[in-house]
């Protein structure tokens, strides 16, 4: 339990940094960044991913592809916390010349495995990275976070088909199932549910969990890493805007940054 207490502290720090960076940049995606923080903290600080922040290109490292690239403030804050780069860089988000681009750019920032943002392309690249491990006889795992709204992109299903076909047991897809997208509720805009059955139809092993309960996330991802038969999908039920009361489950905060006033209130809540 002490460990989880520690993870909770880290997640608060990351959430605070996300809100500060978004406020400083004046634009960016608040809601979807906050919803994946506990997943990222589990991956990077919960003993799930093997990585070396001082040697980001270490060839045996586990990879994380953030297919829902618009949530990159959460990844940037996590990578900074993990020691990939100086935290001061966080405050340059979206500014001219910054390696912290509006959507992740693998050429500009250490720790970014793939350039993503145009939805559906990240998950398909993750399939390629997982398939490459088979050619190169590497044991690394590939984690990929997709949005539930992203599941509307047809390319996602091409990627799932290939992952199932090639039995990519080193691939673990995590769905950030916060139920909201820019134009409203995912089920209203274009219903993607049921998700579980869709993954199963492509020969994935599927777990449904809460995306904010550490022992749940860590146990499931540990199990997923042991799967040698099939790719794994973890459908993580999350709350968009998690951690900030007035942003939680509010679609209005999908693509906007907090104002100075909102930042003050939010930081108070995340003390």
């Amino acid at each position: 339990m002490d460990d989880f207490k520690n993870l909770e502290e880290i997640s608060k720090k990351i959430r605070r940094n996300i809100l500060i960076m978004l406020n400083k940049s004046g634009s960016g995606h608040s809601g979807g960044s906050l919803s994946i923080v506990d997943i990222l903290v589990s991956l990077y600080f919960g003993g799930i991913m093997n990585y070396n922040a001082k040697n980001p290109n270490w060839e045996d490292r586990d990879r994380l592809v953030l297919s829902k690239g618009h949530a990159c403030p959460a990844l940037y804050a996590t990578l900074a916390e993990a020691g990939y780069f100086d935290k001061e860089l966080l405050w340059t988000l979206r500014k001219l010349g910054s390696p912290l681009q509006g959507h992740p750019d693998s050429k500009k920032l250490p720790g970014i495995e793939a350039s993503t943002g145009s939805l559906g392309n990240g998950i398909a690249q993750a399939v390629g990275i997982a398939l490459a491990a088979k050619v190169l006889k590497k044991k690394y795992k590939v984690f990929c976070i997709v949005g539930d709204g992203e599941m509307q992109e047809g390319l996602v299903y091409e990627a799932l088909m290939a992952a199932g076909h090639y039995k990519l047991s080193n691939l673990i897809i995590i769905v950030d199932n916060n139920g909201l997208q820019i134009d409203g509720q995912v089920s209203d805009v274009m219903n993607v549910y049921p998700l579980k059955e869709k993954f199963e139809a492509f020969n994935f092993r599927v777990h449904e969990i809460s995306g904010h309960v550490y022992n749940n996330i860590i146990d499931t991802l540990t199990t997923a890493k042991r799967n040698v038969i099939s790719p794994t999908a973890v459908i993580a039920r999350t709350v968009k805007g998690m951690g900030v009361s007035f942003m939680a489950n509010r679609v209005e905060y999908h693509g906007v940054a907090p104002t100075d006033e909102e930042l003050k209130k939010a930081l108070e809540e995340l003390k």
Binding site: E59, E113, A124, Q125, G128, A132, A133, V135, A162
Partner: peptide
């Protein structure tokens, strides 16, 4: 062993190729 038929799914084929290039292939 180094040939991959990706089926009738060209977009995914190109992304998979990108992922392979990212991995050093």
């Amino acid at each position: 062993n180094r040939f991959f038929n990706m089926g009738i799914a060209e977009s995914n084929m190109v992304d998979v190729a990108a992922g392979m290039a990212l991995s050093g292939l």
